[in-house]
């Protein structure tokens, strides 16, 4: 089962790369540097998804006190932090040649940094409390509170003036992107989602083994 998931993920990632570099055209305004988007946007999607899962698993843990939900939240938060970091790094690398700066404190970049640091704090909190059950409870509360940042990050470009451009994909009306670019993005969305599932299942297993070893 895991083999299958791993294989599908790998195939998806390869297909994503082929779409990003082979099929999708050179974007007219930005040139080839736009291809970073096929990495940047799916990464932030995985981050949203991961923190959404943290939210749900945290609620489930608080209601049922099931350790498996706690481990899922922990694993998902870790993967989410990984992909948030990747989003910020790739965005910065793209920003230097296109915007002319690695970084600026606009609402999108500020809110995504807050998101990143909050979940980093979440992971740290898990290690800080000695009593495991109490730690899990605190983490669950933080996992729910921190989720309020997700819409803040996403809509920051609409609610405030920013350097970062607004979303293209969910724009109503005539498409802001040619179909082929949308297709390349969607393939990468799928591949990254598989990668997320693969990472989280493996991390959850490892966390389970760790708990067993401690018991």
């Amino acid at each position: 089962m895991r083999r299958l998931l791993g294989g599908a993920t790998l195939a998806g990632l390869v297909a994503g790369l082929v779409m990003a570099f082979g099929i999708a055209p050179r974007e007219a305004t930005q040139g080839n540097v736009q291809r970073i988007m096929y990495l940047h946007v799916p990464s932030v999607w995985v981050a949203y998804l991961a923190f959404g899962v943290v939210l749900v698993a945290s609620v489930v843990y608080l209601v049922r006190r099931d350790d498996r939900a706690d481990r899922l939240a922990h694993a998902s938060a870790e993967v989410g932090v990984l992909f948030t970091g990747l989003t910020i790094a790739t965005g910065s690398i793209w920003g230097k040649p296109t915007w002319g700066t690695w970084w600026t404190w606009d609402a999108r970049l500020t809110s995504v940094s807050i998101l990143f640091v909050m979940y980093l704090g979440y992971l740290l909190l898990r290690g800080m409390v000695e009593d495991r059950e109490r730690g899990a409870r605190f983490a669950a509360v933080l996992g729910i509170v921190a989720a309020f940042n997700i819409p803040l990050v996403h809509f920051s470009v609409i609610w405030w003036r920013t350097l970062h451009q607004p979303p293209s994909l969910m724009k109503p009306g005539p498409g802001a992107m040619p179909g082929i670019i949308v297709a390349a993005l969607l393939v990468n969305f799928a591949a990254f989602t598989l990668l997320y599932v693969y990472f989280v299942t493996r991390r959850t297993v490892v966390l389970g083994l760790e708990a067993e070893a401690e018991a």
């Binding site: 540097v33 291809r35 940047h40 990464s43 990984l82 990747l86 690398i93 493996r202």
Partner: peptide, 30 residues
Amino acid sequence: MADNWSFVIAAYGLAVVVLAMYWRFLVRRE
């Protein structure tokens, strides 16, 4: 319009390294 391929390579290279490292960490730990 400059294509800035070096930036594209840097971004994808970084992603490959980070993701591969995390994967290796999971495999080893397990």
